[in-house]
């Protein structure tokens, strides 16, 4: 269904991708992290919990702002990126890599098709925020 290393984006700036071990990962986009500024704290989702599409799964805080992370599709949390507890700045440094939020399972992988690919996300950002 989904290509390795391909990123799927939500309008609320989360991404989902599939890594080389065939796990799905979720994170926030480079644009979102740059809007937030220096991340100082993340509230990670609960392991094992099932979240419905658009449900809040966590929070990211910079010094004086808070942003919520939403589930772009129905998903279940397999594990979280606990490195973020000590080094939340990974979200700024490597939003698409080490700064991912969690590893997830998708109820229905075809849900990903409702999300944007990289190009359409970039033009979405461009048209809405510039």
């Amino acid at each position: 269904m989904a290509d390795n290393n391909k990123f799927y984006f939500a309008k609320s700036h989360e991404w989902i991708s599939i890594d080389s071990d065939n796990f799905y990962n979720i994170g926030i986009s480079d644009f979102a992290q740059s809007e937030l500024g220096d991340v100082v704290y993340t509230q990670l989702p609960e392991i094992g919990r099932h979240y419905k599409k658009d449900e809040k799964i966590g929070e990211i805080e910079s010094v004086k702002s808070v942003s919520e992370i939403y589930a772009p599709v129905d998903l279940t949390i397999k594990s979280v990126n606990s490195k973020l507890n000590e080094t939340p700045e990974l979200i700024n440094d490597e939003p698409f890599g080490e700064g991912f939020i969690a590893k997830i399972e998708l109820n229905n992988p075809s849900d990903l098709l409702s999300l944007m690919d990289k190009n359409s996300y970039e033009s979405f950002v461009k048209s809405n925020h510039e």
């Binding site: 309008k11 609320s12 700036h13 979102a32 809007e35 937030l36 004086k64 702002s65 808070v66 942003s67 919520e68 809405n128 925020h129």
Partner: peptide, 14 residues
């Protein structure tokens, strides 16, 4: 600013 971030995220800018 949280409000602003959410506004951006909700595509409610224009």
């Amino acid at each position: 600013s949280a409000y602003i971030v959410n506004k951006i995220k909700n595509n409610d800018v224009n």
